[in-house]
Design a protein around this nucleic acid. Structure first.
Lengths: 190, 190
DNA sequence: CATACCCCCATGTGATCACAAACCGCCGTT
DNA sequence: AACGGCGGTTTGTGATCACATGGGGGTATG
């Protein structure tokens, strides 16, 4: 999810087992779960690797993020009190720090934490779980992008999201979330 | 997915293995996958059963269906030619037949086939996969409802969906799909 | 007759093994 | 120099086993 593994990277059950000091059996179960969630790709011969997404697939996953995350933010809005907004602002400082440090994995991790923190307030666990599987599918690809990207400014749309939350402005929030989600992924399409 | 198993029904790895003439290992992998998709519930002690959904969870899954299936139908609309509409009408006759036969499992199966046939035209495999995991989560609960239900009339909203497809009426299609999805699940909330 | 306790058995977990398939690198040929 | 065939080795699969744990039924007690 955080892009620690490059797209197309091959994994072996014995290798995973050795890495975590377990036998093949738990490694297999974990891999099967991740395959079920679309986070890993299972070739017809049973070999496992991170997926290499096509442009079409990236666009579709971005559309899913937009659809679901806009809904989640909308549901979180009435429950968003000052403590939450403070917490979002604090996380956003970490995001900015990761940007200046050019830490792609740290950026993705803190960026997703920003979104997750907001969506947790929506009280919609099934919806959040689905969004997280989408993040999981995009992880390796997002890293490949942000690794290339030479950006130094912190995320602009996060500030809009926070402002809309403060103002209780639902249309503004929906637009800001949609823009934030779409913006990063639009440049993914090579 | 088709409601062949009641909510809360317990399953054992050895039992599943015996049922399909395999050892525990493939049964475990299948169960883990279904747990990952939310189709099965894994207790803290590792026991496996179909989930017993709370009202909140049912409402959330219904909202997900509405959100995603409306989008899928909207994307399918420009590609929906006469052959597809004919096929939908044919499936809809099967649905009606299942209703008169009071065959709950057959009704759920053909109803989902109706929806899947339409959504396949959307060319959005990731979105369709997610919708199917939602169907999977609702399967046992839907059966428990439709089993109680004493309905004899075929689904009204399916006709509206077909009419909107014929007319190329996108707002009408979105409304009809949303109504069809919501209607059945609204009465689930006891 | 109801309730609580306890023990045995059913059940999941993780490890290991035998086997088949497929991948990869090497060598020969053209 | 490029391509194709071949064999060794890596890899996934399914089965089986030993073990720990939790659940349910039976029994004893109030």
């Amino acid at each position: 999810m955080h892009g620690e593994i490059a797209p197309g990277q091959a994994l072996t059950l014995r290798g995973i087992g050795k890495e975590f000091d377990v036998s093949m059996t738990p490694a297999r179960e974990a891999v099967r779960r991740l395959v079920a969630e679309g986070a890993l790709f299972l070739s017809s011969s049973g070999r496992v690797s991170t997926p290499e997404l096509t442009n079409d697939r990236i666009e579709e996953l971005a559309a899913l993020r937009a659809l679901l995350e806009v809904e989640l933010s909308s549901r979180a809005l009435p429950r968003a009190h000052m403590a939450l907004i403070d917490r979002l602002q604090s996380i956003n400082m970490t995001v900015a720090e990761m940007v200046t440090k050019r830490d792609a994995v740290g950026y993705i991790r803190s960026n997703l934490e920003f979104h997750r923190t907001l969506y947790l307030r929506a009280q919609a666990p099934a919806m959040l779980a689905i969004v997280e599987t989408v993040w999981l599918q995009l992880g390796p690809t997002m890293r490949a992008l942000y690794g290339r990207l030479r950006r130094t400014e912190p995320p602009h749309y996060h500030k809009l999201i926070i402002a809309a939350l403060k103002a209780g402005d639902e249309p503004g929030l929906r637009l800001a979330v949609r823009s934030d989600v779409t913006q990063g992924l639009r440049m993914l399409v090579s």
